[in-house]
Design a protein around this nucleic acid. Sequence first.
DNA 1: CTTAGGG
DNA 2: CCCTAAG
Length: 613
Amino acid sequence: MFGNVEDYGEMFQDSIFQTRSGSLSSTNQIGNRVAYKLVRVAGDGTLVPATDEEMLKVKDLLENNEHVNEHDMPVLPEPIQTEKYTPDEGSPSQFLQLENFEGLFQSEAAEAYTENLNSRHESKEELMYGTQMLFALPDTKFQISNELPGNVEQVQSEVLLSEPILFSSNGCSMNQSTDDLNATGSPKEPKEAALSTAASKPEVSRVAGEICLDNLSIRALQETFRATFGLETTCTDKRWLKRRITMGLINSCVVPTTTLTINDNKLIGGDQDAIDAFSKDTLDEERAIESKDTPSSPDCIKGHLDDFGHTPVETFVDYYSGNEDFEGGQRSAKRVRKPTRRYIVETSVTNERQQSDESMIPSKDQSSIQAVSSGGGVVVTRMVSLAGSRIQVPYVSHGRRSRPRENIMALGEFHSKSWEVKATPDKGNLNLSPSQLNNDVNRVPGVKSAPRRVQKKSDKDHLKPIFTEVDQDMMEPELLDSSGDSSDDNCVDVPITQSAIRRKLHRAWTVSEVEKLVEGVSKYGVGKWSDIKRLSFSPYTHRTSVDLKDKWRNLQKASSLNRMGGGLKKHGSMAIPSHIMLQVRELAQKQSPISPVESKARVKRSRSRNGFL
DNA sequence: CTTAGGG
DNA sequence: CCCTAAG
């Protein structure tokens, strides 16, 4: 966990660095590194330099998690960042990055850290310590310049021995400090000039004292933005700019949109509660998205990062469909809500048209597509969600292959209400088109029943020819309306997550079905579900033997229940005729003389009737 | 695969 | 309905 965070810290640097320098040749350069300083965010928002003790803890954590780094480092996706970079306009993807890191790093770092502590140390003290969140801030003076205790030097150098620990959104490009910023603070010489990065990589700037973004013009804000993130912007929304900049400066995404002033390392204008609330909201949003794919949030992070080695950029680009609304100044008041997946598809289609010139891949979700060099050649892949995991698959362009699913629930209702009365086999409905019929006739006597869920779709086609041999007289009305249900099996078009996980459609049992079931039970005996299925339910392709068994269980329960409880009928379900219930009771008691619900009196009667006494 | 039973 | 264990 912790190792990951470390990785990302570095990745972040790299990505920014590469973006700025326009060189994406290598992904793991560690030559240029920013010096980090370990601080702790106290309850009131102040940044407290780490003590020796804390340093040791962190070091300990790092050392104990070093093995995590042995994973192959996530490789930065090449396509988007550089190509689209246009200094004058500020490419969406680049801001996307920033957005990414805000969200991901913030939440993950906190989570990772607390989780780590949680697992490693049991004591409350440690947990508290953890939730205070250790931040490694770049060695910029702006946040601690005035009140660094004496041990800071030591702390600092100690940190420098190891890799930069945590992320820092301003860690890379603070040196182009603008006049605006310098005007408000007294410039100081960098202490560790040698540690400052190379020319291409900005030094860290220091802004002592107060940073009040409110007084800045839009132009100044844009400059500040550029200085902070190293990215140009043409955004003219003051609030948006201020928020971004502040985020960058205080290394957090939890900046309220209200007036903000940074004064002596303290946030002025937003109390901690507000920030906390905001932070929680941020986390929740992350999870809300993540949980679409994974049941639990800790897993999802791990899954995305560990198992698949994707960078945060990748992950987020997918969600954002690589195209954040960058005119986004207008909606800066609210935090950007990640679009739903469907929305992504739709919007990215339109994006595709806009940038059709550079898009050779007809993609629904272009952002998730990337070129991956595999072996000798380059393979174009796309992200696919499968059963809660994200995998990369070779890109295949596919259009719609089957019509959309119909609303079967409505049909189910239709069954139980309308057709109940005239449920007798009816030969007059054979005039329905074969296409309507063959949907459900995927199973005939003599053909092995398909296991549930699996390979259902495979037997569809080659069973169709057999359709003509089916005794159509056996068909029940239910059979004929199910035009919609088979299309749901070969619906390749929907996201795999849904089609793979989707439950079988609920179909209310009709009285005729129940009658058939009871009849089958009486004929073949309780427990002979496959026989009943095969011999009495062959036309009902949607009822498996397991379904029969389940239904029988329910019937039995209901029959014994409404006898004792005085007819407690479930409101939602249809009323089962009493004569059927009677049959059920009889059959049930026949198979198990001692019914779990029935009393001894019943057993006695049963025995006497069976001549046991 | 079929059954049985819990979820 | 789903899932699993047990034959």
